[in-house]
Structure formats: structure tokens, C-alpha cells
């Protein structure tokens, strides 16, 4: 096995890895991103096999079998995750899950963490419902004691 052959095959593994990296960074479909990962792993195991042939022992091939096992596990878990994600939002777009990364909150700085250590810092809840001072309840819906007592169950119970 000549050096130029080793060189060519290592370049082939590198090219496969780079193509997979391009695919993983640029594609948006979840399934194609995982296929890009598999392409990268294929390039890596090709690399290992070339070195195994070059050094004439079985270490590289054993490591390639390990890579194969892990990639099979990864494919199984990834497909299960894609299926269960698809049940929640019927799309394969990876950017549909961008809100998992808390884009609403401002970026935390070091001072925020220091403040958290000393004083209790409760989250501010957004106001829910209507403010009765701003919008008074219409008089037809107001409960009062001087209405007809038969139509008011609260008053009849109190009586």
C-alpha cells in the first residue's frame, strides 16, 4: 500500500466529512440533517479502515465497527425523536423548534447571576384578565343584594 494511495483515500474521507458538515450546517429538514451526520461518520470510518490497512492490524477496523454501532444507535434514537416531534408540530423544519432556546429572554450577563445569588428574584408574570378599575363590570352582571332574591342563589343560601 503506497503512500499516495493512503493520501488519496484520506482525502476522500475528508471530502465526505466536509460534505456532511456542509449538509448539517445548511439543511433545515431534520431527516436530512441526520443523514448528513451519517455521511460524516462514513467518512470517519473510511479513514479508520485506511489506517487499519496501512498499519496492518485490526485496531482501525474494530474502531470502525464501534462507529457503525454508535451510528446505528443514533439513527434509531433520531428517528424516534423525529416521529415524536412530528406529532407535536407537523413539520420537519428544524427552526420550528427554535423557541426551545429561550429567545424571548434577554441574554444573561454576569451581573444577573450575581444578583440571583443574593436576593430572591421572582419572575414577572404578564397580567392576565381585565383590570376592574380600567374597565368596570357592566351593571347587568354585577352581583348586588337588592335584586330579586329568587334569582340569586348566593343570597338564598345565605338566607
Amino acid at each position: 500500500m503506497s503512500h499516495s494511495e493512503v493520501q488519496n483515500l484520506l482525502l476522500l474521507g475528508g471530502i465526505l466529512f466536509a460534505l456532511g458538515l456542509i449538509g448539517f450546517l445548511s439543511r433545515r429538514s431534520l431527516i436530512l440533517m441526520f443523514l448528513s451526520l451519517e455521511t460524516m461518520l462514513s467518512g470517519v470510518s473510511l479513514n479508520l479502515i485506511v489506517f487499519s490497512k496501512f498499519h496492518q492490524n485490526y485496531q482501525g477496523q474494530i474502531l470502525a465497527i464501534m462507529v457503525l454501532t454508535i451510528s446505528a444507535c443514533e439513527a434509531a434514537i433520531a428517528l424516534a425523536m423525529v416521529v415524536s416531534l412530528y406529532r407535536r408540530k407537523p413539520t420537519l423544519d428544524v427552526q420550528a423548534w427554535d423557541d426551545l432556546s429561550e429567545t424571548i429572554l434577554p441574554k444573561s450577563t454576569e451581573g444577573d447571576y450575581q444578583g440571583l445569588e443574593h436576593e430572591e428574584n421572582y419572575p414577572k408574570l404578564s397580567p392576565a384578565g381585565l383590570d376592574p378599575l380600567d374597565r368596570p363590570v357592566p351593571s347587568s352582571m354585577q352581583a348586588s343584594l337588592d335584586q330579586d332574591q329568587k334569582t340569586s342563589p348566593i343570597v338564598s343560601e345565605a338566607k
Binding site: 475528508g14 458538515l21 456542509i22 450546517l25 445548511s26 433545515r28 413539520t91 423544519d93
Partner: peptide
Amino acid sequence: YDVQLTSPVIAAAVSTSLL
């Protein structure tokens, strides 16, 4: 989402430098 890519410039630059 199949047609539009996330960041083709960064992807091509990163993998070209890696290669």
C-alpha cells in the same frame, strides 16, 4: 424549509477551511 438553507455562506466557509 427544503428550499431555504440556514446559512450557506458559513457552512461553505467552515467546511472549506476544514477540508
